[in-house]
Computed example of a mutant assay.
Amino acid sequence: MKFRKLGKTGLNVSEISFGGIMLMDTPQKEAKRIVETAVKKGINFFDVGPTYGNAQNILGPALKPFRDKVYLANKTEPGQTKEQVRRDMEESLKLLDTDYFDLYQLHEVTDEDALNSALGEGGALEAIIEAEEEGLVKNIGFSAHKEWAALKLIKSYDFDTVMFPINWNYWFNYNQGPEVIKKAREKEMGIIAIKALAQRQWQDGRQNNYNTWYKPIYDNDRLAELALKFTLSQDVDTAVSPGDNRMLDLALDIYEENDEDLKISEAELEELKGFLESHGGKLYPIPK
């Protein structure tokens, strides 16, 4: 596994990282195996949150033997009050059996009201800053799925990281991603890519028991390879696996089969663009 510096945090994170939502409702024994395998293959960045069902409860015991060897990220909902965020954080620390988070984020900032609430007096960001001063949080970031929200947050506060979809379909169809990367790097922010192996919203209902709200690229190996190459060829630091452990296995297989070199070539880029008409489509709502 290769590693990249997560912006100004100074953390050296694995190019493939672990989306903790995949452990929701997973038997503990199976979760232990999934986490052990991930760590053995070099993954050292784990992301989870309190809105992912019981994922925290399950990840905590599975990750405990490796806590001093990995980085752990968590998050909170941006529309909550300072007091609510603090309760969220303390509960997460307890469930994950840790004394601190390497990164704590505003989660999925999608609308103006939540954004303004998070940045305002008595809001979520204030609680996270206080926790950072206490040593409970080492770095502060946010996740957003729409470019306007990400750009406003980047401008509004000196965040350490941004989590944003750097996805072939979202990038080419809606031009979502390039400007976020540019503005984040101007402030030396770390960039955590999500949705690298996402295809589009489900068209005929969820299939094969995949619990992701979007269709992951589970049924086209070549497209999955090109999609992951595309994301890791952009100026990002790590790509978070989709919310299904089979997709983590696929990402690691692709990574290993390419000898950990996922730089997309010009010919491959044109091949990937050729999938847009047949396999692309609406992933997120069209940005405003």
Results as ranks from 00 to 15, higher is better:
115 L>E: 15
62 A>S: 11
71 Y>M: 03
47 D>I: 06
64 K>F: 12
52 Y>Q: 09
88 D>M: 08
49 G>I: 00
94 K>P: 02
78 P>N: 10
26 T>R: 14
95 L>W: 04
99 D>V: 04
99 D>F: 09
105 Q>E: 14
79 G>C: 05
80 Q>K: 15
51 T>C: 10
82 K>S: 09
118 A>P: 08
82 K>F: 11
104 Y>A: 01
98 T>N: 04
65 P>D: 13
64 K>C: 06
77 E>G: 11
17 S>F: 09
56 Q>P: 02
98 T>A: 03
91 E>G: 00
37 T>E: 15
60 G>Y: 00
82 K>E: 11
51 T>L: 11
31 A>D: 05
104 Y>W: 10
104 Y>M: 00
43 I>E: 00
21 I>M: 14
53 G>F: 14
101 F>S: 04
100 Y>G: 07
109 V>K: 07
89 M>F: 14
57 N>S: 14
106 L>P: 07
72 L>Q: 02
72 L>R: 09
42 G>K: 09
27 P>Y: 12
58 I>D: 03
55 A>D: 06
26 T>D: 11
92 S>W: 05
59 L>T: 00
82 K>V: 00
18 F>T: 09
80 Q>D: 11
107 H>Y: 14
40 K>T: 06
51 T>F: 05
54 N>S: 07
79 G>F: 07
120 G>C: 01
54 N>R: 10
24 M>I: 07
78 P>W: 13
63 L>V: 01
33 R>P: 00
95 L>F: 03
63 L>P: 03
44 N>C: 08
86 R>I: 02
77 E>F: 13
106 L>Y: 14
89 M>C: 08
104 Y>H: 04
94 K>N: 10
47 D>G: 00
118 A>R: 10
64 K>V: 01
112 E>L: 13
117 S>Q: 14
97 D>W: 06
46 F>S: 06
29 K>V: 11
51 T>P: 06
54 N>D: 12
115 L>G: 07
52 Y>G: 02
80 Q>E: 12
89 M>K: 07
36 E>W: 09
74 N>Y: 05
57 N>K: 12
27 P>E: 08
37 T>F: 09
74 N>L: 02
29 K>R: 14
18 F>G: 06
87 R>P: 02
24 M>C: 11
101 F>H: 03
75 K>P: 01
80 Q>I: 02
50 P>E: 10
42 G>I: 01
16 I>Q: 07
91 E>V: 08
48 V>L: 07
